[in-house]
Simulated scan of single mutants.
Amino acid sequence: MIALSPPINYRPITQIANPIAHIPSPFSGKVLPLAAHPNAAIAAGMLGTGVCVKMNVPLLLSPCNGAIEQIRKDSCEYLITANNGLKMLLSLALSSEFTKPELLKANSFGKTQVRLAEPLCFYDVPLQEAKCIGAIVLLNAQKLGACYYPLKQVTAAKEPIITIARACAL
């Protein structure tokens, strides 16, 4: 039987007791539950715990210093291992009509290392025509403490999208 990851709940940043890590957002936009992602496996939490962002700019920045393990799906999925060992899947859900190579204005092809806030990919997509959802999924966070999304709106590389707290009574 497949065990699904628990969802990340909203909790204002001032109400999170014992935070041990803040993961900077790789996207800018409105934060949504992971269930909002169009990929059923990601939305169900089969790959890990995470959140989505309804993006207002189709720009994906690195949320950490680390290694790019894999780039998949027309430069729309990145597997990254942070220097602290945390593994993340960063996923952009764009219509196939908007993932054409001529619309990809920046990418990380050939890179193995990445720095915090470094651009991973940017699509020149008219957002009024295309719905763009980004997801950050923590692939190996099972042994960490509780995870929360502390903000309802985030700016890429400037605000935390996920805060990890030590296990404790809140």
Rank of each mutant, 00 (worst) to 15 (best):
A36D: 13
F27Q: 07
I23M: 10
I16S: 15
P7H: 10
P6S: 11
R11A: 05
P19W: 05
L34M: 14
P26Y: 08
L34H: 10
R11G: 01
G29L: 13
V31N: 04
H22N: 09
P33A: 11
Q15Y: 02
A17I: 15
P6N: 10
A36E: 13
L34F: 13
N9V: 09
I20C: 13
H37Y: 14
N18L: 14
S28K: 02
N18R: 15
L34W: 10
P7S: 13
P38L: 07
Q15E: 15
Q15P: 12
A35T: 08
P26C: 06
G29C: 11
L32E: 14
N18G: 03
P12M: 08
Q15R: 12
P24N: 05
N9Y: 05
I16T: 14
I8G: 00
A35M: 02
P33R: 00
I16F: 14
P26D: 07
F27M: 07
N18Y: 15
G29N: 11
R11W: 00
K30V: 14
P33C: 01
P6C: 03
Q15F: 03
P24M: 08
I13K: 09
S25K: 09
P6A: 12
P12C: 09
P24Y: 02
L34I: 15
H37Q: 09
A36M: 11
Y10E: 05
N9A: 10
F27D: 06
P26N: 06
I8W: 00
N18Q: 14
P38S: 07
H37P: 01
I16D: 15
A35S: 14
P33I: 00
M1I: 05
P24K: 09
S5H: 09
Q15C: 07
V31L: 05
G29K: 12
T14V: 13
L4F: 10
P19Y: 06
F27G: 03
A35L: 05
A21N: 03
I20E: 15
I23T: 03
N18S: 14
P26S: 06
P26H: 08
S25I: 08
A3M: 10
N9K: 12
P6I: 02
I16M: 15
Q15A: 15
H22S: 10
P12E: 11
S5W: 06
